[in-house]
Design a protein around this nucleic acid. Structure first.
Lengths: 344, 344
DNA sequence: TTGTAAGCGTTATCAT
DNA sequence: ATGATAACGCTTACAA
């Protein structure tokens, strides 16, 4: 006597419907149902319709685990960002979603909190999911992480910064050029004593400082005493604090470039509180052009970064890589735009 | 002659190491290796060590797809939030991660952009992954989504708002009470003509308005003309715009409660620009107490929501549900705190 | 164009 | 305490 619980593989009482059940209902073999549902080569039009109908009636949703196991390929793409508190990455993520989800790809978000070790862990764990692709932020990572990515053979696109190493695909802009642009703008306004204030100290923040310094050196205006860097996480509160600190040490500073808009916003608010005239006494330029920056008092000048475009293009490039299509430009420089408003 | 490519299942030339290889290297059967690695019942101490060592040497990482397929259980928990642009949800997410990742659970983030349909899609797709648990935001969803969650049998905890329906677990605070608290504070300051300004119009924003209204009605101060609502997404820029609009229509308004801090910040900046004295002419109270609110000019009074605690407790409750442990309080009211600063 | 057979890497079940 | 065997639900060969 057969056990009442026995599933004989082609008919079951409950639980999620399987491909077998869909196939049975449509009167075809499971493999045909599979092909029909995936829109793969050569299935008669009529059968496709029947299978789709059966699937819809049953509310069939493929089991991703079985799919991944059988094909050694998941339908997911892993995106690793250093933070979600920075609107920059949220916007980039949105753009990535917009490109990838319509292709039936799941986007797995990993936040590594600006920690190389955490990023390495995430890479190790997520690679186990056999993702179709990888979208990574910047080029600063452990050797071990680098090797895992390389060894996995999973297509990968790097976002935000640029690197011309062969075989590497990236979408971003030159962080150094951005720093230089800020300096040149401030210099063009006739300011002489110019400071760079940065927090977080990830590689990109450092690179912007580097660009800023180079431009000042070229103009013969570089003074290391006007560089204020801290590893603490960037925030509005910290911006005000660093502004006070810088002014206490260097009362004659004439212009400040902040590595992030939240720092610059904090400085603007602190200046307001102290009655320091911006831009008359001190010019302020931020970086990223957060949505709120244009509404500050005075309206914050900032370097607008193409974060949505970076996300979109990175995702599109990844799609091409996955499909084996040739990539015209492995290094895509999307540039940036200096938004001159009231603060400089 | 055997094909050179043949993997005889217990030794392979390349690719990711499998459990079989680990087992072979440790001199045990695959199932023992599996048990040892999972720390499951009754494996001799010595064997556990040997297996662990073999796994470490090979750099073995279990295949989540195979795992999920064999056990009909993934190691992931799905969290659905309406937005990532609101720091509120980012902070909640962080706290959830902090609790769940140490337990070996992967956190899958779904952003449904305040769209019921998108949430329903996400639920349908993510349920296919056989998640161990579900963390949902609020109670506003399609009937279909509700049914899928119910039918799936996957443990679920609702965040942010409270609901006393039987069998339902939630962690949050009373949105209505928060609205009432804002009104009472403003009334206590002697203000009479009080307005509520909200955007996005998700259920919680509406509920806060409802609470605000009730408190005003009780005090005999309710005037529907002082309610300004828009479905547009909340932002600093929009806050300034709504502030101007409200003032144009109701020049005698004495206090405003904004449904979100970014709106309130925009109003504060606009007031600064127009030379309107806050709080002397108009008092302003925000909601959520974003980190930057304390640095506005004047410093913004706001209702501080326990977002990290909500994430933590929701995750802990989910863990208990998954483990089958009894839940002492199915409805956990974590309250809120009115931070009175300079703007009111 | 369709189907058959086998296997993906792991765990549940049932023995020993 | 350990192991043999059979799934889990799907897709990749390869045939027909």
């Amino acid at each position: 006597m057969p056990s009442p619980k026995k599933n004989d593989k082609h008919s079951r009482a409950s639980g999620r419907p399987t491909l077998n059940e869909v196939a049975q209902r449509a009167g075809v073999s499971p493999i045909t149902a599979s092909r029909a549902l995936r829109g793969v080569s050569s299935v008669a039009e009529a059968l496709v319709l029947k299978v789709r109908e059966a699937a819809a009636e049953l509310g069939y949703v493929a089991n991703p685990a079985a799919r991944a196991l059988a094909s050694a390929q998941s339908h997911s793409v892993v995106v690793l960002v250093p933070s979600l508190s920075n609107q920059l990455f949220v916007d980039t993520l949105e753009a990535i979603h917009g490109v990838l989800r319509p292709q039936g790809l799941e986007v797995l978000i990993g936040n590594f909190h600006y920690s190389r070790d955490e990023e390495e862990d995430l890479i190790r764990n997520y690679l186990a999911y056999q993702p179709r692709g990888l979208l990574l932020t910047g080029f600063e990572r452990t050797e071990s992480a680098r090797r895992m990515v390389e060894a996995s053979g999973v297509p990968c696109v790097y976002m935000m910064d640029l690197d011309h190493s062969p075989g590497l695909h990236c979408v971003g802009f030159s962080q150094i050029a951005a720093g230089m642009a800020a300096a040149e703008h401030l210099l063009a306004g006739g300011r002489k004593r110019l400071a760079y204030v940065g927090a977080q100290l990830d590689q990109r923040t450092l690179l912007r400082g580097e660009g800023f310094r180079r431009a000042l050196q070229k103009a013969g205006r570089y003074d290391p005493a006007l560089e204020l860097l801290t590893p603490r996480p960037s925030s509005v509160g910290l911006g005000g604090e660093l502004f006070r600190q810088l002014l206490a040490a260097q009362p004659d500073v004439e212009g400040i470039f902040f590595g992030n808009d939240d720092l610059a916003q904090g400085a603007l608010l602190e200046a307001l509180r102290q009655g320091i005239a911006v831009p008359e006494q001190i010019a302020v330029v931020g970086f990223n052009d957060l949505p709120s920056s244009a509404y500050m008092v005075p309206r914050l000048s900032s370097i607008r970064t193409p974060r949505e475009a970076i996300g979109r293009r990175a995702a599109e490039t990844l799609l091409a890589l996955i499909a084996g299509r040739p990539i015209a430009e492995p290094v895509q420089d999307l540039g940036f735009e200096l938004m001159v408003r009231e603060s400089s």
